[in-house]
Design a binder for these strands. Structure first.
Length: 390
DNA sequence: AAAGCGGGGCT
DNA sequence: AGCCCAGCTTT
């Protein structure tokens, strides 16, 4: 079978398979471009089952482009809390504000305009254009690269940007007349349900008969992909600082800088203690434990003008990002005496921000109920949940 | 081209 | 303990 014949077979059978039955997903209820847009942003690097509850909540709270554009950023981040890659949420809102300003709140049926929105790259632009407007644009994600690498036995490394560009051309050539939306979704649906990364279910696959990788018995070797570097370790010390007097029952939290890791999210104050296990201490070494308590006390005073008195160990928590592995040791602490010039404490009591030498840091005293308003990364949700549950 | 950027689920 | 997931942005 020559390649063009295989292509026609592939497109016809895959589309028919998808139309025989597909998953009933919340964003497939209609073709509202805003609903498609939100779903595609949430689905970046995130599984369908994880996204569904977030999607339902998000659409209920921000049902229109206008509603999202008008919302305070903190509310949007709170709605995204726990989903990860928080710049997606901030870029999505920036995109919504662009749509309001530039296009009167209507997402335009125009590839360049859509591709120009914040947070919308080649994949998402193609997905919106094809699914919402049925335009014949490719939408190449990890699923599509895997499926096409196998069916056509392509050996290019899918981790390389150049490979995606090539597969986009191929994917575009496969789109059946007038069926771009269904076909692109069919490709991804096959990758998610049948042509899976680890153990693909070839027998029920609608295009198995002419799958080149399968015919050669190489479906487990493809696609070729260079593996990512493991996350580097970071050993960190955090403090739950208990308030007194007017702040009785509250603890001290701070907001992260507006760019970089976990941008604009809230957290417990913490400091980097080292990058090797040798910087850590052993549970059975009281002397080293005291030195660690001393270390975080010094560091927080230097970095934030906070004088604390650690009173005991609370928890050890691991948290793995794509590129960093945090080992976090959490102490409980009281505020120390004799630092009336601790500007951060006064700023926190006034509910205002404070500029440190290192970075802008806004400190705030919060009670348990205030957690429902501020967005925290999962690591700190776990720690705070444990603290307030005891 | 490479690195930064979350979190969870599966093998 | 890796590997992957309906990727985009910055350097």
């Amino acid at each position: 079978m020559v390649k063009q014949e295989a292509s026609l077979y592939f497109s016809r059978e895959l589309l028919a398979w998808y139309r025989r039955g597909n998953r009933d997903l919340p964003w497939r209820r209609n073709k509202d471009p805003y609903r498609i847009w939100v779903s595609e942003i949430m689905l970046q690097q995130t599984r369908v089952e994880t996204v569904i509850p977030y999607y339902e909540r998000f659409m209920a709270q921000f049902p229109t482009v206008q509603a999202l554009a008008d919302a305070p950023e903190e509310e949007v981040l709170k709605c995204w809390e726990g989903l990860g890659y928080y710049s997606r949420a901030r870029n999505l809102q920036a995109g919504a504000r662009m749509v309001v300003q530039l296009y009167g709140g209507i997402i335009p049926d125009d590839k360049e305009a859509v591709a120009g929105l914040k947070g919308v790259g080649p994949y998402t632009a193609g997905a919106i254009m094809s699914i919402a407007f049925n335009r014949p644009e490719p939408a190449v994600d990890g699923n599509v690269m895997r499926v096409l690498s196998r069916f056509f036995c392509l050996e290019d490394d899918i981790a390389k940007p150049k490979t995606r560009v090539g597969i986009e051309k191929l994917a575009a050539s496969l789109i059946p007349e007038g069926a771009a939306g269904d076909f692109n979704q069919a490709l991804m649906e096959l990758g998610a349900l049948v042509c899976t990364p680890k153990s693909p279910s070839c027998l029920p696959c609608p295009v198995m008969e002419h799958c080149e990788a399968r015919l050669q018995g190489r479906e487990l070797e493809l696609p070729v992909k260079t593996k990512a570097k493991p996350p580097r370790p970071e050993y960190r010390l955090a403090a739950i600082v208990r308030g007194s007097g007017a702040n009785e029952g509250k603890i001290l939290v701070r907001q992260r800088p507006e760019s970089g890791l976990l941008a604009q999210m809230w957290e417990l104050p913490h400091v980097l203690a080292g990058d090797a296990a040798g910087d850590w201490y052993r549970e059975d070494a009281p002397k080293e434990r005291a030195e660690l308590a001393e270390a975080i006390t010094r560091a927080l005073e230097d970095e934030a003008g906070l004088l604390i008195r650690p009173t005991g160990w609370l928890a050890d928590e691991e948290h793995v990002f794509s590129h960093i592995h945090w080992h976090m040791r959490v102490y409980e602490a009281d505020l120390g005496e004799g630092r009336a010039d601790a500007q951060n404490i006064m700023a926190a009591e006034a509910g205002a921000g404070y500029e440190t030498d290192a970075a802008r840091s806004a400190y705030r005293w919060i009670g348990r109920e205030d957690m429902d308003k501020l967005p925290f990364p999962n690591l700190f949700l776990r720690i705070l949940g444990q603290y307030w549950k005891r």
